[in-house]
C-alpha cells in the first residue's frame, strides 16, 4: 500500500508551496516555491509507484520548465514587487466562490467514490513505459513532434531578431564613436606611453600631453601623483630612440579630419 507518512509530507509541502501563488509578492519567491511543489509531486509519483515519472518530473519541471520561468522572470525584472491589492471590484469574492466552489465540489465528488487500490501493481519502470509508449501510444509520440516544432518555431518567431543592418566594421564603429564626441582614443590605461610604469603617472595622448583622468582620483586626492612634465622633455628629445613618440611641436590633430585608414595604419 501507499505510504501514509509520505503522503502527509507531500501534501504539506505542495499545499504550502502552492499557496505562495496566492500570497507571495515576489515572482522569484513564487517560482522557487513552485519548484518545491514540483519536487514534492515527484516524491508523490515515486510513492505511487511511478519512479520513472518522478524523475521525469524533476528533469522536466524543476529542471526545465521552472528554470525557464525564472529566466523570463529575470528578463522582465526579477525584483518587481507585486502589490496584492485587488483592483477589480469583487474579484476576490468571485475567486473565492469559484476556486472554493470547485474545490468543494471536486472533493465531495471524489470523497463519495470508493475505489480500492489494486493489489497486483508493479512499479512503472522505464522499460515497461517504453514498451507502452511505442506500441499503444506511438501515434501520440509522433504527433508530439509536431507540437515541439511548433513551440520551437513559435518562440523564435516571437523573440528572435535577425540582423537587420549590415554588420558594422571596426572602422565604422570608431568613426561613429568620434562623431559622437567621445575621446578619440580609448580611455588610456595608466602608464601607457609613460616611461614610468606606475599608477601614479598619467598617460600621455599621442601628442604627448598627459591625460589627467587616467590617474585614479584617489591618488589625486592624496596628492600622490607624479607630474608628467618631467617625462615630456624626454619625448621632446630628438635622441629619443622611441619611434612611436611624436615631436612636441607636431600640429595638434583634430579628431574630425583624422583619416581612419591612416590611423589604422599608424596603430599597426
Amino acid at each position: 500500500m501507499v505510504n501514509e507518512v509520505l503522503f502527509w509530507v507531500v501534501a504539506i509541502i505542495t499545499v504550502t508551496g502552492s499557496l505562495s501563488l496566492l500570497f507571495a509578492r515576489k515572482g522569484a519567491h513564487i517560482a522557487m516555491s513552485i519548484v518545491t511543489v514540483m519536487c514534492g509531486l515527484a516524491a508523490a509519483y515515486v510513492g505511487l509507484g511511478a519512479p520513472f515519472l518522478g524523475v521525469v518530473q524533476i528533469v522536466v519541471y524543476t529542471g526545465a520548465v521552472m528554470m525557464l520561468f525564472l529566466f523570463v522572470l529575470m528578463l522582465v525584472g526579477v525584483d518587481q514587487r507585486e502589490s496584492l491589492k485587488e483592483t477589480i471590484k469583487g474579484q476576490r469574492w468571485i475567486a473565492l466562490v469559484g476556486a472554493g466552489g470547485i474545490a468543494l465540489l471536486l472533493i465531495s465528488v471524489i470523497g463519495r467514490v470508493e475505489l480500492t487500490s489494486s493489489d497486483q501493481f508493479t512499479d512503472g519502470n522505464p522499460e515497461e513505459i517504453a514498451i507502452e509508449l511505442f506500441s499503444q501510444y506511438v501515434l501520440v509520440m509522433e504527433v508530439l513532434g509536431a507540437l515541439l516544432i511548433t513551440a520551437a518555431v513559435g518562440a523564435l518567431v516571437l523573440t528572435h531578431t535577425p540582423r537587420l543592418t549590415p554588420r558594422r566594421t571596426q572602422v565604422e564603429l570608431q568613426a561613429a564613436r568620434i562623431l559622437a564626441g567621445a575621446d578619440p582614443v580609448n580611455k588610456p590605461m595608466p602608464g601607457v606611453y609613460a616611461r614610468h610604469n606606475a599608477l601614479d603617472v598619467p598617460a600621455l595622448d599621442p601628442e604627448g600631453n598627459p591625460i589627467d583622468h587616467s590617474v585614479s582620483r584617489v591618488l589625486e586626492a592624496r596628492h600622490q601623483t607624479q607630474e608628467g612634465a618631467e617625462f615630456r622633455h624626454q619625448l621632446a628629445d630628438p635622441d629619443n630612440p622611441d619611434h612611436d613618440a611624436k615631436p612636441a611641436d607636431a600640429p595638434p590633430r583634430d579628431a574630425h579630419d583624422r583619416n581612419p585608414r591612416q590611423g589604422e595604419g599608424e596603430s599597426r
Binding site: 504527433v143 507540437l147 511548433t150 518555431v153 513559435g154
Partner: peptide
C-alpha cells in the same frame, strides 16, 4: 491534438 492546433493559433 488540441494543443497541436491551439499553440500555432496563439502564435
Amino acid at each position: 491534438a488540441l494543443e497541436v492546433f491551439s499553440l500555432p493559433l496563439y502564435l
